[in-house]
Design a protein around this nucleic acid. Sequence first.
DNA 1: CTGTTAGCGCGTTCAA
DNA 2: TTGAACGCGCTAACAG
Lengths: 338, 338
Amino acid sequence: MRHRGGSVSIRPTSRDVAQAAGVSQSTVSLVLAGKWTGRVSPATAEAVRAAAEQLGYRPNLAARNLRLGSTRTVLLVVPTLSSPFFGAVYTGAARVAAAHGFGIVVYPWPDGVGPADSPFAAPHDAIDGVLASSMAVESLGEFAGTPAVMLDSDPAGGAPTVNFDVAGGMRALVGHLAGLGHRRFGHLAAAVDEWTFRDRGAALAEAVAALPDGRLVRAETAIDVPAARVAARDLLAGARPTALLCDDDQIAAGAYKAARGLGLEVPGDLSVTGFDDVLLAEALEPELTTVRLPAEALGAHGMTALLDLLGGGRPRSRSLAGELMARGSTAPPAGAAP
Amino acid sequence: MRHRGGSVSIRPTSRDVAQAAGVSQSTVSLVLAGKWTGRVSPATAEAVRAAAEQLGYRPNLAARNLRLGSTRTVLLVVPTLSSPFFGAVYTGAARVAAAHGFGIVVYPWPDGVGPADSPFAAPHDAIDGVLASSMAVESLGEFAGTPAVMLDSDPAGGAPTVNFDVAGGMRALVGHLAGLGHRRFGHLAAAVDEWTFRDRGAALAEAVAALPDGRLVRAETAIDVPAARVAARDLLAGARPTALLCDDDQIAAGAYKAARGLGLEVPGDLSVTGFDDVLLAEALEPELTTVRLPAEALGAHGMTALLDLLGGGRPRSRSLAGELMARGSTAPPAGAAP
DNA sequence: CTGTTAGCGCGTTCAA
DNA sequence: TTGAACGCGCTAACAG
């Protein structure tokens, strides 16, 4: 609703600013775009700024995007918001994006939701690029064709990738445990068909096989505490590993419960390790030996690669090392010589 | 890379579709908008759909938004992504939004970051409305003027609000503990100046005051495990409450550690309660008695209210009840008669 | 130094 | 039943 004469509750356009400043629309555009030096007199430039300020003018993004064909916005696609992990990824990515005048917007895209579900619910292409974390490149469906960098995903997808060296992390864990004297290992694997978990499993199997007398049993579980508890109980009831390596800190929490349920003490009777080092690791008791994955660096490197890609470059895939966090949940096996 | 008859894989426009189908642009628009009944012959409509499908046409959002003046997108502003809580809020909001053809995009806006930090980093106004969770309406700054619904925020802000009945939750907790025989309470409060925590503290003080012989001591802590541990230790070293009510599950995790550090058993020597019931509550041992806050319902009701607001309505503020989850961390105080 | 002009791709009148 | 023409607000050429 427009009120003539007095104040206007309608959003001012660049034309309104031009009119108020007594210049043309293009002059306004130049001045507000910042690159007017030597093309507009400082006096008129100041007049334009004043008029814009006083009118509370802010450019219409839709129009600007339409004209420019780019939005300086990238989409961070994550499988879920229910893990603190992605908060860190966002923070890292947003920091480098902001330094380049880019914005990041987060789009949780749970697996198994087809693109057909909501034709206009996704930001489609109001974005310049996609940063996708922890998913297969194929499940990007709708965003196919948009420049994309995959995070924590299968490097065999064709898109540039920034990953964690999860294999190295697993080897570090096994090395740590073997150094403590462990030989009989259990693997509580995440029953999720993702690259990172496949890689973890393979690296673990390899590392144990390389150990003289190394033995490994394996069970799968969903990534939640109750499921992990059941899976751990079943595993421990059969074989009797002295160390249990869990694909995720949440799974480790379930393993704790199973161990206590069986009268086993952690770490006295059973060493337990996790993976990720999210908030859970330090909340548990004893605190969890795990591998810290540099999630913030993942986001930052991913955004850097995407910026490179958008600029026409061909960023190289790379891998980020994790860090072994040795804490209270691991100890020499019972009866081992110190 | 798509190879089709040697043509370049440039994004098709509605004009391309029109040309391919042998009709005019407006016909394409009508057909794809779904409102063509009685204005376009079924045969041509089908031809248009086929052409669009075959070309992989998808409308340019920027142009559509410019023309329509609305984006059918709302922004969910959250203070952090590092809490699983907001994942649930998103899920609830997204479900309702999708049912109405709206999309939701998440924008993490940490407290203390001024709007001046990144002129174009925020989605500004490429949105129809804002759903802001767990923040003061004043800190919405940049989005002032956009239709907004506040979630889990101070109802005194002017904007429509959807909140949790945290006061009721606290009363339920106190009732539960008092029923067990507790009279001396400790409050580990979150040192965060947010409505929800102020409300929790007030409700707790009131409930304890209403109890014959009720006593309450109080300490503040940041919301993380190590800080909470220190605060809890200090509190327990002074007064000797038999029950410790924590403003958050993470704080409760720290309290567990402090208790064990002092040789106190939970719940034998000290009952502990949390608030929120996020993943931590069931991972701890013993499992945490806490108040489950219906985060998903919060998001859903908030989105419903925002839709109402966008439609010109005046949604009423409302409050959602929490649910007491009595688990293993609470028991009668030592020496109490059963 | 500044104003005029021409679209970006779409949805929606108006005529045919 | 369909097509031609217009304009959303902005920016980038090109004139003046």
